[in-house]
Amino acid sequence: MADKVTKTKSKATKEGDLPIGPTGRPYHGFDVPAPLDSHGPARIIALCNQKGGVGKTTTSINLAASLAEYGRRVLAVDFDPQGALSAGLGITVHDVPTVYDLLLDTKRDPREAIVQSSTPNLDVLPANIDLSAAEVHLVNEVARETILARVLRHVAGEYDVILIDCQPSLGLLTVNALTAAHGVLIPLECEFFALRGVALLIETIDKVRDRLNPSIKLDGLLATMYDPRTLHSREVLERVVEAFGDDVLETVIGRTVKFPDASVSGVPITEFAPEHAAAQAYLRLARELVARGAVA
């Protein structure tokens, strides 16, 4: 599929001649990344937002599949007790080892729980409702904020990128994800109430940087569920760009019913409807993150 992807980059040589994208900035296409000669160690990216329904899991699934399509070895970590990422990739989560078991026994080999998805180059560390008990079990553990980092350390050398799909909260599980991560990607719905929690999330990231993980950085804010037909969507995106500037990714993910349809089928949208604008947007997001240096 990668060789079929049409580059959207303008032939113009001057940035001023590039088309203007939804963010109000020149709309680059970003070249298809060159294949890698070797794999690892992985850069770990947490997809985080304490507000639910903003597209974290959809982005985790489809960004992982897009990076895999470009030859990157990807591990998608389902770190939400709802297990939506696992279900969205067609992974069985009943009576199998999950990330919860690894958190309780950090000496256990993570490879026992990792499952190969139907998408080449994409593996999954699944989760189920058992994970909801993790915070209770871990609260008295020494260095409880670093447990996920210790788990992922065993397999980081085998992947190019590890994506952690966080639950919609700022509790101990999310702090574990931020402590393990090198970067944070914040999916942000183009809706007013989605803006309200971003400052709190940024504050939490700053606290983690200060106290637990000095190397963590903000990889970007990703506008999701964008509907150019509504003034509200356009105004919210404009306010996000005004507030966060170049931290807002150029790629914007539009609203479409194809996402739930793909989830029901248990495959990424890049496989379910590869020519659809939403699939192309996630491929473009993968290219943008490679161009920004967030992914090898």
Rank of each mutant, 00 (worst) to 15 (best):
F259T: 07
E69T: 13
I253W: 13
H182K: 02
M225Y: 09
T106I: 14
G21P: 01
S215P: 00
L138A: 05
G55C: 10
I129A: 00
V241F: 06
S118E: 13
V99K: 02
V184F: 15
S263C: 07
R255H: 15
Q50K: 12
D210H: 03
A127G: 04
G293D: 06
S38Y: 02
K7P: 06
R144S: 03
G21F: 07
L218H: 06
L173N: 08
Y226I: 09
I269M: 09
L104E: 15
P41L: 01
G24L: 02
N140K: 15
D109M: 07
I129T: 01
A291P: 00
I147W: 09
R211V: 01
L249M: 11
F192L: 12
G266Q: 05
V155Q: 07
H232C: 02
A149E: 15
I45T: 08
E235L: 05
A76K: 09
A87Q: 09
L67Y: 14
T98M: 02
L221D: 01
A180R: 07
A12V: 00
P274Y: 11
T106Y: 08
G293R: 00
A181K: 14
D101V: 10
E191L: 02
K11H: 01
H137A: 06
T6I: 12
P214V: 03
G266P: 07
P260W: 11
V93D: 14
I162C: 05
D130A: 01
A68I: 13
E288L: 04
R144T: 13
R209I: 09
A180V: 14
L221H: 06
F193V: 12
L289N: 02
K11M: 03
P274C: 02
T23F: 13
D261A: 08
V142Y: 14
T57K: 04
P97H: 11
F193D: 15
I44F: 09
S118A: 05
V99C: 00
D123Q: 08
Q280W: 11
H276D: 15
T13H: 09
L237F: 06
